[in-house]
């Protein structure tokens, strides 16, 4: 077993885990933060996207022990009480989701895209979304939501 400590959504957490525990398993099964989804488990779909030290990463392809000492933000860490994060609000406003399975990853990736490209145009957003798959929406409204978010 390995001891791991990190900050998740502003809260210090620590646990003894098997070294092979994935960050997403730690988040979902140990911390019970089930907003972060596992779509493919093969680094393709981006449903598991979280922020680690401010950068978007696929938590299904990271060991929990690799996040030792890191600041992790999941979808649960975005809203302030009842007030949605501007990216979440924009997904709602622009109808950027249908079944919602990909949405936590899309929102986390969207925030990361706008952080790196504050005035991202449509082409940039589409290129930057290559690591996030959606089986429902056809992407159009997701792209609109990310471009128009008041972040």
């Amino acid at each position: 077993m390995a001891k791991v400590s990190m900050t998740v959504n502003g809260k210090a957490v620590s646990a003894n885990v098997e070294p092979r525990t994935l960050l997403v398993e730690y988040i979902r099964e140990h911390l019970r933060l089930t907003g972060t989804h596992v779509g493919c488990d093969t680094t393709q779909c981006g449903a598991c996207t979280v922020h680690v030290n401010g950068q978007a990463m696929k938590s299904c392809t990271m060991l929990a022990v690799q996040a030792e000492g890191a600041e992790v933000t999941t979808i649960e860490g975005l809203a302030k009480g009842d007030e949605l994060h501007p990216m979440q609000a924009s997904f709602k406003e622009n109808h950027g989701l249908q079944c919602g399975f990909c949405t936590p990853g899309m929102v986390m990736a969207g925030i990361d895209i706008r952080r790196r490209h504050p005035n991202a145009d449509e082409q940039t957003v589409r290129h930057e979304l290559e690591g996030n798959l959606c089986r429902c929406t056809g992407y159009h409204n997701i792209v609109k939501a990310i471009m128009n978010a008041q972040v």
Binding site: M57, L129, E130, G131, N132
Partner: peptide
């Protein structure tokens, strides 16, 4: 790859 892959 994609942005998440490039970050790691």
């Amino acid at each position: 790859g994609d942005p998440m892959v490039r970050h790691r």
